[in-house]
Amino acid sequence: MSTNWAYNDNVKSHFQNPKNVWKENEESFDADGKGEVGSPACGDMMLIMIKVKDNRISDFKWKTFGCASAIASTSALSEMVLKDGGMTLEEAYKITPEDIIKYLGGLPANKIHCSVLGDKALQAAIDDYFDKNKLANPFKQAVSEIICHCLNITEEDIRMEVLEGAVDFETLQQRTKISTVCGKCKDNAKNVQQKYIDKYYAETIYKPE
């Protein structure tokens, strides 16, 4: 087989031999917290189930419907979380898509959106753990800054859209309708979007002179 595969070797190996995957039905894993995000219509769906012991994640199992990089990202995430006896809930909650991509050694730009579900599903599982045990959730972030006041669109919403591939303002607008009401936030919204485009795609987007 030729060496140049669609993804790097690390992604390939996680796809071929996914780690910590749960092959039984989800009920048979007695989860302390469970998080499911995405939908089959979007082409990506992830289920993450965790066990918690002494404030650390002692077990992490997952199921994924998605492309090779979605499968590899979840597998990589499970490895990151379970390393050295398991991350604390706080450490796990703070994992970002960038951390996962870095751990995998990079993903093609058009695949970045495939890795953003893993951290969301993990956060949902941790939220679920706190809910189930009627504990206060210390990690749920204060609401992100609102950029478009007419439509209540936050900086976090824009960041997510950029990760999901909205790399020009037209696309961002199609998806969110941002600054289509009074239009006053347009410059700010563009700047915020550009900030994240630069952050995630700087080296991969072709910019004609």
Binding site: M1, F15, D44, F65, G66, C67, A68, A70
Partner: peptide, 16 residues
């Protein structure tokens, strides 16, 4: 059903 095409494609690709 229940699975995604790209991962099928790449799985088959590994078998040539």
């Amino acid at each position: 059903k229940y699975i995604e095409g790209e991962s099928i494609l790449l799985g088959l690709d590994m078998d040539g």
